[in-house]
C-alpha cells in the first residue's frame, strides 16, 4: 500500500510533502517520545504523533519513514512543513485521536496484508 491509498481510506488531509505520496507503507509506529521512535521505528512505517516541531521531520528522514500523521487536528510548525517538502516525506493530518487513527490504520494495513 502507498501513502496515497491511506489518505482516501482514512480521510487524511495532506499538509505537505506531496512528492512523497507514493512511498510504500509497511506498518506504523506510535509514540511522542523522539528517542523511542529513533530507536524502534522501522523504515517505511507511518509515524503517528502529536509532536509538531521540525525535529519530527529530521527523525522521519533519518529513519526513512513513509509519512507522519498528526492527530487531533494539530498543525505542524512552518519549519516542519519546509523540512517535509525538502525531504519529500508527507505530513498528514487527522481530527481523530491517536487511539482512533491507530486502530483504523492497523485494521486497514492488516486487511490489505501490508504489515511487515
Amino acid at each position: 500500500m502507498k501513502v496515497s491509498d491511506l489518505i482516501e481510506q482514512l480521510n487524511l488531509e495532506v499538509i505537505s510533502g506531496e512528492k512523497g505520496l507514493d512511498r510504500e507503507v509497511t506498518g506504523a509506529y506510535v509514540s511522542d517520545l523522539l528517542s523511542d521512535v529513533m530507536g524502534n521505528a522501522r523504515e517505511s512505517q507511518m509515524w503517528i504523533t502529536l509532536q509538531v516541531h521540525q525535529n519530527v521531520m529530521a527523525i522521519a528522514s533519518l529513519k526513512d519513514l513513509a509519512a507522519v500523521i498528526l492527530v487531533k487536528g494539530l498543525r505542524p510548525h512552518e519549519s516542519t512543513i519546509r523540512h517535509s517538502n525538502d525531504e519529500q516525506i508527507p505530513i498528514l493530518s487527522t481530527t481523530d485521536s491517536t487511539f482512533e487513527i491507530s486502530g483504523k490504520l492497523f485494521e486497514l494495513l492488516k486487511k490489505e496484508g501490508c504489515l511487515a
Binding site: D32, L33, L34, S35, D36, G39, T49, Q51, H53, N55
Partner: peptide, 9 residues
C-alpha cells in the same frame, strides 16, 4: 515537552 529527555538517549 518536545519529546526529548526521556532517558533513552
Amino acid at each position: 515537552e518536545m519529546g526529548f529527555g526521556a532517558g533513552m538517549g
